[in-house]
Simulated assay, not measured.
Amino acid sequence: MKPETEAELAEMVAGLSEPVRIVGGGTRGVNGPGAVLETSGLGGITLYEPGALTLVAQAGTPVAEIEAALEAEGQQLAFEPMDHRGLLGTSGTPTIGGVVAANISGPRRIQAGACRDFLLGVRYVDGMGQVIKNGGRVMKNVTGYDLVKLMAGSWGTLGVLTEVSLKVLPKPEAVATLAVHVTSAGDVIQALSAALKSPFEVSGAAFDPQVGRALLRVEGFSDSVTYRTDQLKSTLSAFGEATEVSDPAELWQGLRDVTPFHGQAGDVWRISVKPTDAPEILTRLEADQTLLDWGGGLIWARVPKGTDPRARLGAFQGHATLVRAEAETAAVLGRFQPESIGVQALTRDLRARFDPRGVLNPGLMG
């Protein structure tokens, strides 16, 4: 099923006699029911006001189309949505609906916020085929219940997105990245934390153990970037000499898309933790390969096929999400961190309200 309009989608959902797997651009390789409901037919930017920093697009609009329109006006999606194709070995086209449904957010999240923080409004079809609108198309609209943020990260289990309204931001005039060579995980976290706690507005803080570099990004007006970069070099001097890296855009795109893992065998997990807990988590993981982002608060880990990192980690403050694995492993371990009893009850009640028939991506989130 591939509707071309919101009304057609609503009619299809209302008439469902079996559960469906919702697919946007087909880049995520999510498992589910055999019946597929595609949203890629709902495409196009319906409103773009650069002066108001506002863009509205249908859910099936390719992210590349949106980024091209923003680039022409010197603007950007500040939350840097990841392109999963290289990591997952998939094809297809990333869509803005898929980005919002999974709340995909890149390295700049530590400064600018997540995808959900840039959502102004949504339109979606619930599990009964009703069209729901929440939020607005402008930043001053704050009325009503905040279903906007609830839909971000719900993975299509509460409704099928048809349109999203987003706040956009100007692209920075200049970008600089500093690299400091460090060895121990403890020193890495201290270095990244020192930079993030400084007043110099770091917009990226990552570490690739394969090359042993802590990476810090600074963005803004040219004179400001030059000053802040110089000050950060002094701040980081206790950890070693900080040097500027060439091609920072390519570097951060590679970090965003977890390029070091591309073509490497094994399962891939995404682990969110307190940055100060990262060294202990890395020790428990015993992963084949890791990559740290968000100042150490996000750990990408590549482990042998079928490995259960949650068992290795035990109890910890955070959550581990399975990003890439064979269907059998995903079926056994589950994609998402198991919820507590209280959260399970809340989730169950929400789904009963939004999708009482259980036809939208059943079983995906537990």
Score class of each variant (00 low, 15 high):
residue 1 M to Y: 05
residue 3 P to Y: 00
residue 4 E to M: 11
residue 5 T to G: 04
residue 9 L to C: 10
residue 11 E to Q: 14
residue 13 V to G: 06
residue 14 A to P: 14
residue 15 G to A: 15
residue 21 R to H: 08
residue 23 V to K: 03
residue 26 G to E: 10
residue 26 G to T: 12
residue 26 G to W: 12
residue 28 R to W: 15
residue 33 P to Q: 07
residue 38 E to G: 00
residue 48 Y to N: 03
residue 48 Y to C: 03
residue 52 A to V: 06
residue 53 L to E: 13
residue 58 Q to K: 09
residue 60 G to H: 05
residue 61 T to D: 05
residue 64 A to M: 12
residue 64 A to F: 09
residue 68 A to L: 13
residue 69 A to D: 09
residue 70 L to S: 02
residue 70 L to W: 11
residue 71 E to V: 09
residue 71 E to D: 13
residue 78 A to T: 03
residue 78 A to H: 00
residue 80 E to I: 02
residue 80 E to Y: 01
residue 83 D to P: 06
residue 84 H to V: 15
residue 95 T to C: 03
residue 98 G to R: 01
residue 98 G to T: 00
residue 100 V to W: 04
residue 101 A to Y: 06
residue 104 I to E: 14
residue 109 R to G: 04
residue 110 I to V: 04
residue 110 I to Q: 04
residue 110 I to K: 02
residue 111 Q to L: 11
residue 112 A to S: 02
residue 115 C to P: 02
residue 115 C to V: 00
residue 116 R to E: 03
residue 116 R to I: 00
residue 120 L to A: 03
residue 124 Y to L: 15
residue 130 Q to D: 15
residue 131 V to A: 11
residue 133 K to N: 11
residue 140 K to P: 09
residue 145 Y to C: 07
residue 145 Y to N: 10
residue 145 Y to T: 10
residue 146 D to V: 11
residue 149 K to R: 14
residue 150 L to K: 02
residue 155 W to F: 15
residue 158 L to H: 04
residue 160 V to L: 04
residue 165 S to Q: 05
residue 165 S to R: 05
residue 166 L to C: 08
residue 167 K to F: 06
residue 168 V to P: 10
residue 169 L to S: 13
residue 173 E to D: 03
residue 176 A to W: 10
residue 179 A to H: 12
residue 182 V to S: 04
residue 187 D to K: 08
residue 187 D to E: 10
residue 187 D to S: 10
residue 194 A to S: 12
residue 195 A to I: 07
residue 199 P to E: 12
residue 199 P to D: 12
residue 200 F to H: 15
residue 201 E to Q: 13
residue 202 V to F: 05
residue 203 S to C: 07
residue 205 A to C: 02
residue 209 P to N: 07
residue 210 Q to R: 13
residue 210 Q to M: 13
residue 211 V to R: 11
residue 215 L to T: 07
residue 220 G to Y: 01
residue 226 T to P: 11
residue 228 R to F: 06
residue 230 D to S: 13
residue 243 T to K: 14
residue 244 E to R: 10
residue 246 S to C: 08
residue 272 S to C: 14
residue 272 S to H: 15
residue 276 T to L: 15
residue 277 D to C: 09
residue 278 A to G: 10
residue 280 E to C: 10
residue 286 E to S: 13
residue 292 L to E: 08
residue 292 L to F: 08
residue 292 L to D: 08
residue 293 D to I: 06
residue 293 D to E: 15
residue 295 G to T: 03
residue 295 G to W: 05
residue 296 G to C: 02
residue 301 A to M: 07
residue 305 K to Y: 11
residue 305 K to V: 11
residue 307 T to L: 07
residue 309 P to H: 03
residue 309 P to A: 01
residue 312 R to G: 02
residue 314 G to V: 02
residue 316 F to C: 01
residue 317 Q to M: 05
residue 319 H to Y: 14
residue 322 L to F: 12
residue 323 V to K: 14
residue 324 R to L: 07
residue 325 A to T: 09
residue 325 A to R: 10
residue 329 T to Y: 11
residue 330 A to D: 07
residue 331 A to W: 09
residue 334 G to Q: 03
residue 335 R to W: 11
residue 343 V to Y: 01
residue 346 L to V: 13
residue 349 D to L: 15
residue 349 D to P: 10
residue 350 L to H: 06
residue 352 A to S: 12
residue 352 A to K: 14
residue 355 D to E: 04
residue 360 L to S: 00
residue 361 N to Q: 02
residue 362 P to C: 00
residue 365 M to E: 03
